[in-house]
Amino acid sequence: MTTGTAGPTPGPKRAHWLRDHSELGVSVLLLVLGVLVLTDALTMSVDLTQRGPVGPRTVPLVVGGGLLVIAVLLAADVLRGGRGEAEGGEDIDLAEPADWRTVLLLAGVFLANAVLIGPFGFPVSGALLFWGSAWALGSRHYDRDPLIAAGLSLVTYFVFDSLLGVPLPGGPLMGVV
């Protein structure tokens, strides 16, 4: 993970090198993925199921092999000084250090929604998702934020459930209403 400190950091050289070459982590992940795909393909039993000359193993073998090759090529590229360009955008300020705390908070709020949607229903979990995300992103209007969240969640629930015919769980709250 980059912490984005500008200039040479006083810490040990090795940590610095690793931070500069954190993209090697992508290479490792691709390697692991490749091994996973290959293992899965090789342990597949295809004696009876195969029809035609190309069975269900062929494409996974090609994809898994490709992943291994690309992992090595990417590592070589990074070691030779190649860097993936972080994506820019209108609301993105790459000069600032990455704020991983916000990302973690958002991921947590999102997971909470996945857990709560069953027992409490979409109107409640959705409102919490919106409010929690807005809070994580820096909004601190305690009067306005929960109202917007509740309104958005309820309107979405009715539009999807009643107008579009896509069922969302109402939960105990909608049971009362």
Binding site: D91, V109, L129, F130, W135, I148, T156
Partner: peptide, 23 residues
């Protein structure tokens, strides 16, 4: 901006849930 990106996460969750109704 907090509302904009919170809204994107919100609708993404709605969309994914609508696929099969599974958490």
């Amino acid at each position: 901006r907090p509302y904009l990106y919170a809204g994107i996460l919100f609708f993404a969750a709605v969309g994914a849930y609508a696929v099969g109704g599974e958490a």
